[in-house]
Design a protein around this nucleic acid. Structure first.
Length: 354
DNA sequence: AAACCGGGGTC
DNA sequence: GACCCAGGTTT
């Protein structure tokens, strides 16, 4: 392990005081607000999470307001932010704190860690920022700053790497101002020690950064390769009745988009045409429940919706019917449901051409 | 330990 | 196309 002196932490905090962004969760120690921001910012850039934070605080000023909201409403507000288990866990945790803990937020790392959706990073962040506990955070920014400054090549996504960087961060943390230190090192990584082409020549640490001196900035941090993305083929059946109702269903079970709404879906192993679609057992079952007047393909060219771990090659089939059966909603009201961005984009385009 | 879970930005 | 983002949970 490198030798630890107060030099690094003091200089980092001095930089932070001069260069930090003004963000709404930096004007408060309210654990509800800190928690909300930290959950939203998991694997999410500040610029993307910020408008959602403002929406949630306005809709749910107190944690009780969040706890008392219907889950569908919370998911709708979360729509577009991704990783929807965060929203479900957020809501469940709000209920637990509100109903089982008399609305009092856990005030230490160990108890925070027990909350749903709160792991090592988030427990440390809340403990340090809201409760002044010396618990070091290690997020993607911290990995990058530390691996470069101390030239550590241990893969950051290995078990040993996670332990090593956590231990180093814990030694570096300023115990007199742990929350400020944690935010400072993350802000420095996000704003200065950026992944690509950082301005090392003018960096305040360029006389102590080992990676800079060894010309290894570009190859740090080291990350173990990930597997290639999966390709999937989605066929959405967009029912359109004579009075413009459609069928929406809620996703259940495992996999992506749990509890979000979508049109009836038939997944295939490859792109298919209309005659092939009609022969599928899933389609046969579907067609028994509805009197199909006509089917047409909305988009000949599939929409490639890219998730981080899979590409969804998607085509929408317009299924016209005369009847208006149960469990249908006006297609103009789909916007009131929590749907994947893929579905929201389709609905927008549908009305543009309507 | 590895797989899974979104969407958007950057180069 | 590859990589990254104020990570956590499940298998």
């Amino acid at each position: 392990m490198p030798k630890i002196t107060p030099y690094f932490s003091k200089k980092l905090i001095a930089w932070y005081i001069q260069n930090k962004r003004e963000l709404p969760w930096r004007n408060t120690l309210n654990p509800y607000h800190i928690w909300l921001s930290e959950i939203m910012l998991q694997q999410t850039r500040v610029s993307q999470g910020l408008p959602y934070f403002l929406k949630f605080v306005a809709a749910y000023p107190k944690i009780e307001d969040l706890a008392n909201a219907p889950e569908d409403e919370v998911l709708k507000l979360w729509q577009g932010l991704g990783y929807y288990s965060r929203a479900r866990n957020l809501h469940a945790t709000a209920k637990i704190i509100s109903e089982d803990m008399r609305g009092v937020f856990p005030n230490n790392y160990k108890d925070l860690l027990k909350l749903k959706g709160v792991g090592d990073y988030t427990a440390s962040a809340i403990a340090s920022i809201s409760f002044n506990q010396p618990e070091a955070v290690v997020d993607g920014n911290v990995y990058r700053v530390l691996s470069r400054h101390f030239s550590i090549s241990t893969p950051i996504n290995s078990t040993t790497g996670q332990k090593e960087f956590k231990q180093l961060a814990q030694q570096l943390i300023d115990k007199d101002q742990p929350g400020t230190f944690n935010q400072a090192i993350m802000e420095f990584g996000a704003r200065y020690c950026v992944p690509q082409n950082p301005d090392c020549e003018n960096c305040i640490f360029n006389n102590s950064c080992v990676a800079f001196q060894q010309n290894k900035v570009a190859v740090l941090p080291v990350k173990i390769k990930t597997k290639p993305v999966k390709k999937r083929f989605f066929n959405y059946l967009v029912v359109l009745s004579e009075n413009e109702h459609t069928v929406l269903q809620q996703r259940t079970g495992k996999g992506i988009w749990q509890k979000l709404y979508e049109f009836p879906l038939i997944e295939t192993s490859e792109e298919i045409n209309l005659s092939s679609l009609k022969k599928l057992p899933q389609f046969q079952t579907f067609s028994e429940k509805i009197n199909i007047e006509n089917i047409s393909l909305f988009n000949e060219k599939p929409v490639i919706h890219k998730l981080s771990h899979q590409h969804l090659s998607t085509r929408f089939w317009i299924v016209e019917t005369l009847e208006d059966k149960e469990n249908t909603v006006p297609i103009s009201e789909v916007k009131n449901y929590a749907v994947p961005v893929l579905i929201a984009d389709f609905v927008s385009e549908f009305f543009e051409n309507y």
